[in-house]
Design a protein around this nucleic acid. Sequence first.
DNA 1: CCCTCTTGAGCCAATATTGAACCAATGTTC
DNA 2: GAACATTGGTTCAATATTGGCTCAAGAGGG
Lengths: 225, 225
Amino acid sequence: MRDSVQKVALDLSSKIESGEWADGYRLPPERRLAAEHGLARNTLRQALSALEQRGLIVRQVGRGTFVRAESRPALADGLLAKMRNASPVDLIEVRLIIEPQAAALAATRASGEDLATIEAALRQSVLAKGTAEFEHWDAALHLAIFRATKNSLLVDYCEAITSIRNQPRWHRLKQRTVTPASRHLYNRHHSTIVTALRERDAETARKAMIEHLTTVRDHLVGAAS
Amino acid sequence: MRDSVQKVALDLSSKIESGEWADGYRLPPERRLAAEHGLARNTLRQALSALEQRGLIVRQVGRGTFVRAESRPALADGLLAKMRNASPVDLIEVRLIIEPQAAALAATRASGEDLATIEAALRQSVLAKGTAEFEHWDAALHLAIFRATKNSLLVDYCEAITSIRNQPRWHRLKQRTVTPASRHLYNRHHSTIVTALRERDAETARKAMIEHLTTVRDHLVGAAS
DNA sequence: CCCTCTTGAGCCAATATTGAACCAATGTTC
DNA sequence: GAACATTGGTTCAATATTGGCTCAAGAGGG
């Protein structure tokens, strides 16, 4: 057959680009690949060389051939970093998507222990003296709600959000936007949410969270303008 | 076998992280572990050394090897790494929260260019020959929808989801669940969503996405049982 | 016939794994 | 306390696996 090289190169690269062979995956040995494709090893090696030149794979004598893991680590390291660069408006938009649903889930799934943790965080946030302390317990409250959903991905998400909100640039923004009046309002919102959770009222919890985050967003854009 | 070290290291660490080998548990002697895994002791020792370096175990001459207590908090590694351990059900639950809203946002914000990209991805996914190729264009389609929201956080989220779905363990699951019939159904769903986007019909786009992901979830749990 | 692609085989160098032996620290038994 | 067994720590040579490379012969289209 003519041009087997291009054919097998296409086949292999599609396996890589589709994710079937993920980053860091170790390809079968050349000799086996050649046998599986019904080709001589030399021919298959030409295909591999092409992929290597395109940067898709890395070959190491005595170790094997690997899907190049250069693209993914950049994402792994960069995901949080990229999220940290998100704008406040983008962030609150995402929170408005996720957190009402999370609150609704928490209403149906929270254990008694979860509720106790949530209520403790609420009490502490009401008692908090400074802005920093209030923010701490506010974050703890939201996190406790996410834990109550029993969904580890949601917990991860909330921790990421918290880490974003703990950055210095956000601190400055908060200090401009969090006034005694707004704190009082936020406490009322939080209280409504927690009450709804205790009464297993998913719909009320969702709506209360929407109202809460909408208020936060309006304060943010008000402060920005 | 060639990469026995990594394999057995993964096996052992999963036993620890899953809790099967709790904190303080004493591992079987190296010689026994090696025999059970069909490896030479030296090879298995390399795997143990890797775990030791990661802080998962402690080795004591003459006493044995122990799962390290307090190992968990010290391992604040990567957000993405943690997300990768999420269960399929957790993942689809989060997708059901976010993606319908994202579709609704995309309906109001997508540019003509965005719509062209989305429709191209849809066409490619319909034409795709294998499961891998279909998955590739399916992911591209969802990503294009997220890009159309103009919210960088949502795009980051979608890329994280895609990277999770590209893992080998997910690949096996997909190969069991994606049949020609389900692919046909998914194509219909995708088509409905894209049409709604083009017509700027946010509500229809949201509902179509909900129906789509609900179907995917049902296929998943159906395959699991 | 000529040219290119492909094959099959062999050899080399780098790496991985094995298998065994011996040492050192700890625990157990008498 | 002494003898013995168990366990991790270390070293080393032998073997297996793997990619890097070369070359002569075959296959197939112009």
